[in-house]
């Protein structure tokens, strides 16, 4: 656990499943928070990508969720926890091209099955666990040093 005195930034954001009008707003917010901290552009960009993919997945597949941002001196931690159907086969879901996205999601330009793979690529530490009919829990860290 991160000791309290080391926390530079901590925010929790609620995400509504199925609400595509609001999808992405949390990532935009988190990006602006990180930018204000004057972190390097590439670090901010990677954090925003990771956050956006996680946010879109919650909106696309889950009932509701929370994305939390924690900044400590040596890393950015983004956690995305949702209540939803969960992922029965994580290994399969992680593969590029695997997607169960419906027509509505595809019409918006998503559902290529690149999201989780992309999250893994852009984070330094990526941890995913899921319980069917309960939810999915992602933890991503991006190193600052």
């Amino acid at each position: 656990m991160v000791s309290v005195e080391k926390i530079l930034e901590k925010h929790d954001f609620d995400i509504e499943g199925g609400n595509f009008n609001k999808a992405g707003t949390v990532s935009t917010r988190i990006k602006s928070i990180l930018k204000h901290r004057q972190l390097p552009d590439e670090i901010v960009r990677r954090s925003a990508i990771v956050c956006y993919e996680a946010e879109i997945n919650i909106v696309s597949y889950a009932k509701k969720g929370v994305i939390s941002l924690t900044v400590i001196p040596d890393k950015i931690i983004i956690e995305a926890n949702d209540e939803g159907p969960g992922i029965p086969n994580i290994e399969l879901a992680m593969q590029q091209g695997y997607s169960t996205a419906n027509q509505q999601i595809r019409e918006m330009g998503f559902g290529a099955g690149m999201g989780l793979y992309n999250i893994k690529t852009y984070s330094d530490v990526f941890d995913i666990t899921s319980e069917v009919n309960k939810g999915t829990f992602l933890k991503m860290a991006i190193n600052l040093i």
């Binding site: 956006y52 879109i56 330009g109």
Partner: peptide, 30 residues
């Protein structure tokens, strides 16, 4: 957009025929 997120680089132009708000959010993210 899934591929834009995976492949587009910072500082690039994004050429697309999609016009929804997610395109704008993605442009911001990237």
């Amino acid at each position: 957009m899934s591929d834009v997120l995976a492949f587009a680089k910072a500082g690039s132009l994004l050429l697309t025929g999609l016009t929804n708000t997610q395109v704008i959010r993605i442009a911001n993210v990237l």
